[in-house]
Design a protein around this nucleic acid. Structure first.
Lengths: 234, 234
DNA sequence: CCGGATCCGAATCGATACTG
DNA sequence: CAGTATCGATTCGGATCCGG
């Protein structure tokens, strides 16, 4: 049962042995949003086989990355250890890197609340946000609805319960400045390939309610730009 | 032959599909040091099966991470594309993270020139180095010998040919300020667990030639400290 | 429902041998 | 030097089942 070793004495190798097994880093990604129960993880990773999920959780615990915490009102959650939480910069950097290769979503691709939350975190520009007034967005992607609050360098993302898509023109309670629904071209707004105005034209995003000016702020606050001229050739 | 998809539309997922297959990130690590021939990679990854190496190189090319470059004087090398080079911060962060879990080297673990080079890069402290005079180190770990030049915020690492271990007390040509041979406790110097003086006592490092003061500089320049109190429990 | 464990066929990996 | 080919060993995926 000894993990297949790469036979090298090196930090990268050690890290890869701990978290580069299939699915492991996606589990870490979701746990970076917050503690999750077994079933939450299963829902957030719809295609993971249950035996793999439990195997990974076991390995991540042995590696000191994840901790199993029983809750007082029965049930239990998995959460990252302090050491596991140090993976945040790695996962965010990896997310930014992968984002550059992101094309249109495939027909079977899903967007989950946790993955979208981490995408926003990875796209968050502290410097741009600090130069803008505090703002409050509601973002819908597929079935997922997020409330996103930006205040200076602080970003907070809350996941909303499903039934929320509000009736056109009406702002829900708590007054987010804008409610936007993202279409399949949303990544081209985040990448800077489209201006907000263009994105609306193409229906990469739809303003369900609120002021279009806030979409400008949003686009300035959340951006992942390719450093090199990386383009998907496939 | 379609790559097993995780079925999610997310940057982390895309990144993981591209580079989290077994061995892939170690290939990237070595290529971050410089272009390498097939046989260089094979030597730097002693335990990789040759079919896996060629499969990974093919996949990394398809993913736009690696490029195959024929050389004029026959032969060919693999090198990272600009997009692939953007993985450097990810690999360095991962290396730092994994380093915290590094215990003593196992009996079959090897240290390669490329992995050691990347370890030094990941441990390099720009701020500490900027406050010190320019320095020139020669570092031996196992069979690997590196010449390490630090000048302000700039770090340059050269890999020396094998037969180099100099006769005691004599500085090789080009005058590195110090020649040190690392023992198996070297990671405890880099982690800050040991002071240079203690490291010499325990023979975690041995000064083959040169001034011990330079070891102080070295230890200040290259350091990977655990952010959390992460300790290997196994 | 929650939190898994078990079983089995399919795909991948590892080791070695071999080739242009 | 730069890989293929082959084949047994492992792991993964999909489905089902089980105890609270």
């Amino acid at each position: 049962m000894v993990a297949r070793s790469y036979g090298q004495y090196c930090g990268v190798t050690t890290a890869v042995e701990l978290i580069a097994e299939r699915w492991a880093l996606l589990i870490v990604r979701d746990l970076l949003v917050g503690p999750r129960r077994y079933t939450d993880l299963k829902q957030g990773l719809p295609k993971i086989p249950t035996n793999i999920l439990s195997a990974r959780l076991k390995e991540l615990q042995e590696g000191g990355v994840v901790r199993r915490v029983p809750l007082m009102n029965c049930g239990l959650v998995y959460e990252l250890t302090p050491y596991g939480r140090e993976l945040e910069p790695v996962v965010l950097a990896l997310g930014r890197w992968g984002f550059a290769q992101l094309g249109e979503p495939g027909p079977d691709d899903v967007v989950t609340a946790d993955s979208l939350t981490m995408t926003l975190r990875s796209a968050f520009r502290t410097d741009a946000a600090a130069g803008l007034p505090a703002a409050d967005y509601e973002l819908h992607v597929g079935d997922v609805a997020l409330r996103v609050r930006v205040d200076g360098a602080e970003l907070r993302v809350h996941q909303l319960a499903p039934p929320a898509l509000p009736v056109g023109g009406v702002l829900p309670a708590g007054d987010p400045g804008i409610v936007v629904a993202a279409g399949s071209g949303i990544h081209r707004l985040i990448s800077g390939e489209l201006t907000p105005a263009e994105a609306i034209d193409i229906e990469a995003v739809t303003i369900v309610a609120g002021d279009a000016l806030l979409l400008e702020w949003f686009a300035a606050t959340f951006r992942i730009e390719a450093q090199s001229g990386a383009v998907r050739t496939t």
